[in-house]
Design a protein around this nucleic acid. Structure first.
Lengths: 146, 146
DNA sequence: TTAAAACCTCAAGCTAACTTGAGGTAAAGT
DNA sequence: ACTTTACCTCAAGTTAGCTTGAGGTTTTAA
């Protein structure tokens, strides 16, 4: 009963993502399936958790590429269990923290700059990324709307 | 001397953006130029400030579309002066603040979730956007790298 | 048994913010 | 005068993360 074979439509309904997204994730190597007699995708139940993790990580600002790499680091590319998720989320939490700090820095520079209005390309802290904000940093922060 | 006619190459060098980007901004209606005898672009000096503002706003997470709209709201689509910039940056600072708060909320949920590991699609706060994070919210946070 | 619902593949489209390239003209340096 | 550098236009390509559509097959429900 535990390694049930779930259809793509069922998985879509349960996770709230579209069927096309599941196809897409599979193509990208983020999830896996086998085919039934009539060439239709079938999934193990753990795909649900895998997708939860993908979605959670995305909300933390982690790209699909990085998520995939992370999965690959787990023995046998297994779906992260409780302990794994603990480690992953700690790691991503740190990156989140860095991004928050960057934004706070930016907000504070802005405080200083409002009223100055110089916007000198050479010295304005709003314009200039010198302050580690972009230097090698954590990459784009993206919270997807909708 | 003040409304000098600057070449596209000069403006590119001074602002650190590529010539193709200047073409692009012009096409999008973010900056303006006239042509010399030989059909080459010429800019007023204030284009430098305009580009500074575009870049600054982008770092605050404002899209080109919104930047353009904002410029359009200024009388005669003039380049924002010190006072204008004060108002604009205040406005954008608020949006920045909201994004920071969203991320902090997310970080804190994460704190609670690490160790729990449930990731229930139905109840996990990391997965679920219920907490105003996505609801109509401030839109995508994007810090462009490079 | 038949019709609707679900599934399949593959190609192309979407958004943002640009970049690259081809093919040609103008301006500047020697 | 000649050559290099700068500039021009227009079309197409790039990245991420998907979505849409066409044309066809399989499953399921009545």
């Amino acid at each position: 009963m535990e390694d049930a074979n779930l259809s793509v439509g069922y998985v879509a309904k349960r996770t709230g993502v579209k069927v096309s997204t599941l196809h897409f994730y599979e193509e990208k190597g983020l999830i896996f399936s086998w085919r039934n007699h009539g060439n239709q995708r079938r999934y193990k139940r753990d795909v649900l958790r895998r997708i939860s993790i993908i979605k959670a990580a995305q909300r933390l600002g982690v790209s699909l590429e990085v998520i995939k790499q992370t999965f690959n680091e787990l023995p046998n590319n297994k779906t992260p269990d409780k302990e794994d998720w603990k480690a992953l989320s700690k790691r991503w939490q740190n990156q989140l923290e860095e991004r928050i700090q960057s934004l706070i820095k930016l907000r504070d520079s802005l405080d200083g700059c409002i009223g100055c209005g110089c916007l000198s390309m050479q010295s304005c802290p709003i314009y200039n990324p010198e302050d580690a904000l972009e230097s090698e940093g954590p990459g784009p922060v993206i919270l997807n709307r909708k």
